[in-house]
Design a protein around this nucleic acid. Sequence first.
DNA 1: AATATTAGTGGCCTAATGCCACTAATATTA
DNA 2: TAATATTAGTGGCATTAGGCCACTAATATT
Lengths: 246, 246
Amino acid sequence: MQDHASEKDFLAAYNIHDYEVPLTSVDMAIFKLREQQLEVLLVKRSQHPAKDTWALPGGFIDLKKDNVLEDTAHRKLVEKTGVKSPYLEQVATFGGKQRDPRGWSVTVVYFALVAHEEIDVDPKGAKEETRWVPVSEALSDYKLAFDHNEILRLCRERLTSKVQYTALPIHLLPEEFTLTELQKVFEVILGNEVEKKSFRRRILDADILEESGAMRTGSNRPAKLYRLKRGVENHFFPRTIEGPRS
Amino acid sequence: MQDHASEKDFLAAYNIHDYEVPLTSVDMAIFKLREQQLEVLLVKRSQHPAKDTWALPGGFIDLKKDNVLEDTAHRKLVEKTGVKSPYLEQVATFGGKQRDPRGWSVTVVYFALVAHEEIDVDPKGAKEETRWVPVSEALSDYKLAFDHNEILRLCRERLTSKVQYTALPIHLLPEEFTLTELQKVFEVILGNEVEKKSFRRRILDADILEESGAMRTGSNRPAKLYRLKRGVENHFFPRTIEGPRS
DNA sequence: AATATTAGTGGCCTAATGCCACTAATATTA
DNA sequence: TAATATTAGTGGCATTAGGCCACTAATATT
């Protein structure tokens, strides 16, 4: 390409295919909680490369439909789960010469938290075989496509790390939940027990929940139901959860 | 493209230019400290688009030279500053239809911390006009190219946020430094004063520094010089710095 | 020798959390 | 109907990292 006098001329003559560019995609770890286990959604690849192997859901940016990167992630998420208002967070971007046999590739990684109860078991966009797998199992027993094991490991790490000082796990529960239910979620992700009183104080003092008014009943004392206060997306605590002192 | 029997066939027939892909690049905020101010490196663009306007340094991935994304960032950093062992951290990835007039574009953003003393004022790779600008000034007085104001704002935010609970600012100092010097760096980035005793306890108890043996002398009591312990890249404190209680 | 200046410490206060035993409310069971 | 089991929820003291501030220490300068 030669020099151009104005930006207008430059853009008119510009053709992206004159340059070597990497292949850029979006991948995501979609987490949910089921029976006291953290599970992640895997997809069996129906196309080459890595055909027939399990992978994290993802795909290419649709240059027409997607206005910003997050749209791509959101689109994929809805395709796979049908969840309308997920928690979505960008984790990191992986890029390199070796990670995809097609050549230099870049993938922007998101993680999503969805409530088990809000998942559409057969969403519209479902074309490939999918499967929910406990995260530890996905990491130890599955040889995922490309560098997806590494990517998943980082997503899990980011999640556990943020659980130490934020109220993220709320997004793994349906709109209304009891404090004990929330505590259980923290315990599952952290992998250790949490002291009841400390936990309740921590959450309640943060002033991010409101009572829904209803109660959860069972074969014992009923529990208050809470929901996230309007406008509270996420909360950062001044200290990390400390766990048992022993 | 049609169906292929094997991955080998698939790859042989694969051509990235059959698809519409975004333009992918790397941009970075390189921070240093000078005269009690946090400064960022800006580059005057010598090429279209946005020719002659100030921007964060960055560029395209060199599919031949760069093996992974971080290589691109590292290459750019050395080109601009000549610093050999910077602190480099991926911040986020921006992507969208509108941010670059050439079309859908993605940029992976890094921030780097370098010691003022270790900067090569005229590094080999220097081709464009560059300038160190106080960050607040860059954000308020400069209309940077593309969405670089927004990017810089996020980098600054990430930096200040991490200073609350990590020992990051160490990387803005040369190898040996006094505790008071380090405290000053924290104060500059946080924008408020830090209590001396609390600060020293926090840093020293973290067990990440070792005495170099030497002292910094001046017209008053000499101060011990410290350096980062080998193998300590970064440290996370269990609590955030609290600042004045008033 | 006195003074100014910055380095570094002792010791008490505060706040968020850990810990654990207690009370409360419900369904179930005898 | 009363006792029991079970889970919800609280009271209150201990612990720990950090805030606060006054003190001592070591040097160059006056």
